[in-house]
């Protein structure tokens, strides 16, 4: 075989493998979406029906109106959004402050703080379930979204600070120093110089927190006992068992839950990787 032919063959093989990976990754997602739009006849069959030829909005309509556990899916989407956004807002402010302290100042106890951050990240959230549950009870926040926000802020903050400090540190110090020399106050410097440059990092960190809070199941499961306060991950459990497994409705709801995350991922794809890696690798 000529080297050229071999090279071409290799290229074809590479592309074929790439395509295979693509299909492996995307097919389950596609299957979720397509099931959401199939009629029950086409869902409960032992045949393989690649496309919903009997395209229907019945499941989407049903989960939006009738919903599950007594509420429309909108209620749960709303709860999830409130929890995730609340977590992001509180978390962003706290982590920006702490990240600035760690990345811009050298102070006594800085290394200790960094170690604490690291160890805090290693603690499995599941281990904290019991004491945090008791804490939330003590605060009287059972069945309140605020309780869930509080917990999620706690769970996402160490990583948020850890991730954000690299973004802060990446902003050249000389810029701020120039501003000081011009007589700007620290606050002005922070707001006018540092903040705009850190903003993209803050967005990435926030989206990370958003997704974590959006996806969180176990705390929502134990903290929310009223169905009107369920978040999406909890509400989805109620499709199983209660009235038999209504796969059409489950897939319609799962699709709705997945859409915001996919959108965010596509927006910050590159920064997520940088952030996650930078958050963890030092030097």
């Amino acid at each position: 075989m000529s080297p050229l032919a071999r090279k071409r063959l290799g290229k074809i093989a590479l592309n074929a493998t790439g395509l295979l990976v693509f299909v492996f990754a995307i097919f389950p997602v596609y299957w979720m979406v397509s099931t959401a739009f199939k009629t029950n006849d086409q869902i409960f069959t032992t045949e393989f029906i690649p496309f919903p030829t009997s395209f229907t909005f019945e499941h989407v309509h049903r989960v939006l109106t009738e919903g599950v556990a007594g509420n429309s899916i909108w209620v749960y989407m709303g709860n999830s959004a409130i929890v995730a956004l609340g977590t992001v807002l509180v978390g962003a402010v706290f982590s920006l402050l702490a990240a600035t302290a760690v990345a811009r100042f050298n102070f006594k106890g800085r290394s200790t703080f960094l170690i604490v951050l690291l160890v805090a990240q290693m603690i499995p959230a599941e281990a904290l379930l019991i004491p945090l549950y008791l804490r939330v009870i003590d605060l009287g926040l059972v069945d309140q979204l605020a309780g869930l926000i509080l917990v999620n802020v706690g769970l996402t903050l160490p990583f948020g600070i850890w991730m954000l400090r690299t973004f802060v540190a990446a902003v050249p110090k000389s810029l701020e120093e120039a501003a000081w020399i011009d007589g700007a106050s620290r606050l002005t410097t922070f707001w006018r110089v540092l903040f705009p440059l850190v903003a993209p990092g803050l967005v990435a960190t926030s989206i990370f927190s958003f997704i974590t809070a959006w996806n969180e199941l176990i705390f929502a499961l134990v903290l929310m006992s009223e169905s009107s306060g369920y978040t999406m991950p909890v509400a989805l459990q109620f499709f199983f068992g209660q009235k038999g497994t209504d796969w059409g409705a489950i897939m319609a709801s799962s699709t709705m839950m997945t859409i915001p995350v996919v959108v965010f991922f596509l927006i910050v794809q590159r920064r997520m990787v940088t952030g996650l890696m930078a958050g963890a690798v030092k030097g």
Binding site: F22, L217, L236, T258, V262, L266
Partner: peptide, 17 residues
């Protein structure tokens, strides 16, 4: 883009799928 989709799916939805 394809693998991004797989990555983005929330854990609960992963289990369901």
């Amino acid at each position: 883009v394809g693998i991004m989709f797989a990555w983005a799916v929330p854990p609960v939805a992963q289990g369901i799928i």
